[in-house]
Design a binder for these strands. Structure first.
Length: 519
RNA sequence: GGAGCGUUGGUCAAGGGGUUAAGACACCUCCCUUUCACGGAGGAAUCACGGGUUCGAUUCCCGUACGCUCUACCA
């Protein structure tokens, strides 16, 4: 009946008020997957009708986030399209016309109540049973509007330039229903919704008017939005009915919320700050306050992992599979399998996804990212680029975040800055010291510096010195790597070469000697 | 207060009238590993509660409880 024969068109309609929240990106993802599966078009529309909340740079941030995630729109303010403009602030006149039309048709009215009057109404009618009185059919007769005023009075006020809003005249006791793609049929009674403001005093529309008008004008067929919008669906249903016909209404899908890990409730940026994980996709600095908020990208997440993690937060294909590439998501995603229940966000699991994706990607695929992180950390890899894929291959199973590549690979390029001497000091003695002096001699003479040869001569010397190799390997590791981590120690020695190996051993020996003296 | 939505292990979840109720994260034990990881083996749930329907309900229906969202000239 509705849009089955129309070309699928969806939209993501964020407000440019700050960084993009996890939930926002997931909404984009589901939009995108659904749209691509139906060979439709995905539109980015900027809902900047609230001038007071507009934040410079937020729109650019949105483009960058979508690009990073590989979720680019087909139409947007930046790239244009046949249904522009795509910024609601630039469509102001359009909404005004529809609001006036609603008034002419008797579905809306002018309201002149000042904020103070509204406040007075709320306190006056507030009772224990009704803590938040609404501007609705029961009360509008008592307020200052074109329904209670004579048409002459109304005209006079309008002509005098009196500030006004246009409110929807919500009918009494009307059953309003629609079929949600995720929840099935949802029913409301119109008496439960108030006379929502459609057009604000500054002439800008509220979300309710703008979303319906634009969805119609932009020929949107399916609308994915967060569950927090469900209670305002009756307003939108009414608007569709009065303006464009219920038969043309978009098909809605109200997505479950992403909840905070502890306790309950919507996940907010503050929860991330409090619990120590990002909620925004990328770093964000509020230009007004200077407040800085960390993002997933800069923390060292791969976009593949970020998208994957979001996809399975509230969706699952019914199998055991958890790791999905974008191609697989495009193939397997289905709205029917989106959950109804909100999911508590689990950062540990998000890290796990990143770790899995680092393991999953090849060294070549990881290489540009690793180079970026190493350069950022001031590590000079010049002359060793060719070795990088091999090095990445050796350490990638040990990395959870891309940033971990710095610690896990830096010792291949430069001597460790700090040595975990405590790890060796406890069991250090002259015998071991002599062993390493001998080892240096041996390695200086070594012609074939392969891991196998190095290990072989190391063990031979250990046996000759009557020492257990196990007690010597950790010291060697500390000397070369700086700490108790990393790939096999002889692989590292071979990779950095004889010269570096020997100088690092010598340097460590000198430190150990000083410590022994001190003690 | 009201309305709407929801309720399978600590978390994410599969499943769905008859099952030993999958799997993953985290946690614990062990194996592998002369580091750290990877990997491997194992450990824990009568599916919120109460009624129905049924030969049989975690699965269907109705209540209850609990939770969430909304209740702005914000989206």
């Amino acid at each position: 009946m509705t849009s089955t024969n129309r070309k699928v068109r969806t939209r993501f309609a964020p407000s440019p008020t700050g960084g993009l929240h996890l939930g926002g990106v997931r909404t984009v993802l589901f939009n995108y997957l659904f749209t691509r599966q139906h060979n439709g078009q995905f539109i980015l529309r900027i809902e900047d009708t609230d001038r007071t909340r507009f934040v410079e740079g937020a729109e650019a941030y949105i483009y960058e986030t979508l690009a990073w995630c590989g979720l680019n729109p087909d139409e947007s303010p930046a790239i244009g399209g046949p249904f522009g403009p795509y910024r609601q602030s630039e469509r102001k006149a359009i909404y005004g016309r529809y609001a006036e039309q609603l008034i002419r048709d008797g579905y809306a009215y002018y309201a002149f109540d000042t904020p103070e009057e509204l406040e007075a109404m709320r306190t006056q009618y507030k009772t224990a049973e009704n803590p938040s009185p609404r501007y609705d059919s029961t009360l509008r007769g008592k307020m200052h509007n074109s329904l209670t005023l004579s048409s002459e009075e109304t005209k006079k006020l309008l002509d005098a330039g009196t500030a006004y809003v246009i409110r929807l005249k919500v009918p009494e006791n009307e059953t309003l229903r629609f079929t949600d793609m995720i929840r099935g049929e949802v029913v409301f009674n119109s008496s439960e919704t108030d006379d929502k403001v459609l057009l604000k005093a500054d002439g800008m529309p509220t979300y309710h008017l703008a979303v319906v008008v634009d969805d119609h004008l932009m020929e949107i067929t399916h609308s994915f939005r967060g569950e927090e919008w469900l209670p305002s669906a009756p307003v939108h249903i009414l608007l569709w009915k009065y303006l464009f016909g219920l038969e043309n209404m978009v098909t809605w899908a109200h997505l479950p919320l992403i909840l905070k890990p502890d306790g309950n409730g919507k996940l907010s940026k503050r929860d991330g700050d409090r619990l120590g994980f990002p909620v925004f996709a990328m770093n964000w600095t509020d230009p007004r306050t200077g407040d800085f908020t960390k993002g997933y990208r800069e923390l060292g997440f791969l976009p593949e992992a970020f998208v994957n993690m979001l996809a399975v937060l509230g969706w699952n294909d019914g199998t055991e599979q958890e790791l999905f590439s974008m191609e697989e998501l495009l193939q397997k995603f289905s709205v029917e399998k989106i959950h109804k229940k909100g999911a508590k966000f689990n950062y540990e699991k998000a890290l796990w996804f990143n770790k899995e994706w680092i393991k999953k990607l090849s060294a070549d695929q990881l290489k540009p990212q690793v180079i970026y992180w190493l350069k950022n950390a001031g590590i000079d890899i010049s002359g060793k680029e060719d070795q990088l894929p091999g090095i990445i291959e050796q350490v990638k199973d040990r990395c959870t975040l891309l940033s971990d590549f710095v610690e896990q690979t830096s010792f291949f390029f430069q001597a460790p800055e700090k040595l975990d001497l405590d790890a060796v000091l406890k069991k250090w003695n002259d015998q071991k010291n002599s062993f390493f002096i001998e080892l240096i001699r041996g390695y200086e003479l070594a012609t074939d510096f392969t891991p196998e040869n190095l290990e072989h001569s190391f063990k031979e010397l250990a046996a000759a010195s009557q020492l257990k190799p196990g007690e010597l390997m950790l010291p060697l590791r500390i000397m070369l790597v700086g700490g108790k981590f990393g790939p096999h120690v002889f692989d590292i020695a071979a990779a950095i070469g004889a010269k570096a190996t020997i100088s690092r051993i010598k340097y460590a020996l000198s430190l150990l000697e000083n410590h022994s003296k001190d003690a």
